[in-house]
Design a binder for these strands. Sequence first.
DNA 1: TTTTATACATCGTTGTCTTATGTATCTTTG
DNA 2: CAAAGATACATAAGACAACGATGTATAAAA
Lengths: 113, 113
Amino acid sequence: MTYSSELIKGTLKTIVLKLLADNKKMYGYEITQKVKELTQDRIQITEGALYPTLHALEADKLVTTQTEYIGRRVRKYYSLSAAGKTVSKEKVSEMAAFMNTMALLLDLQPKTR
Amino acid sequence: MTYSSELIKGTLKTIVLKLLADNKKMYGYEITQKVKELTQDRIQITEGALYPTLHALEADKLVTTQTEYIGRRVRKYYSLSAAGKTVSKEKVSEMAAFMNTMALLLDLQPKTR
DNA sequence: TTTTATACATCGTTGTCTTATGTATCTTTG
DNA sequence: CAAAGATACATAAGACAACGATGTATAAAA
């Protein structure tokens, strides 16, 4: 089962930045698999969404890249820049605050209980 | 302070349905003010987003409307239909589940603590 | 009397994601 | 061994939601 994709909108960049903050370097396909695994298949990142996002992060200088070859196959690793680390933290805490507000609004038990 | 609006995307319908579940009948402007109040100005619903959403909910038969006049000014009240009540509950619990998953993914303290 | 608040509505633009498509290599399986 | 599936990148067309601007109109406050 997957969430109605509407909810996931706007969270992709945050997810990617957080994973990179935890893992030093990751490549695109690895990110999709990691998210699938961590969320027990509940969130599936499509490649059509991920790659443009990674390219945007790179254009914004939030990540740096390094290409490696596994046999003859290309693998493009992404790592957070200094700026990326800052933005990652900001995005994650913004998400946390937003979730608390939503919990309040939707009358769910708030985290501070 | 307002959240980077990206996060709010996809949650508007859920918010509206939840408010209507709690309040029997509300009109558009009232909804914008209620959300502002409940979230202490952290979430601001714009009219350009709200009215089309309300119209969509109506087209989907999730809400019924009734027009009233306050003096000479029109006010359009929205109420949940039976189907709307069901969908409201579904959307809210989907949102709750999604938030738990995101908390897990972002390594925030999960709600069950 | 002008500004602000209330109250509705639509429309063009933007941004994000989906779905589809394309290329290529490597591994597993019938 | 051939086909299918997994790994790995990428782009492009289209859908859809929300933003920001704009418009109309009434009521209240400054």
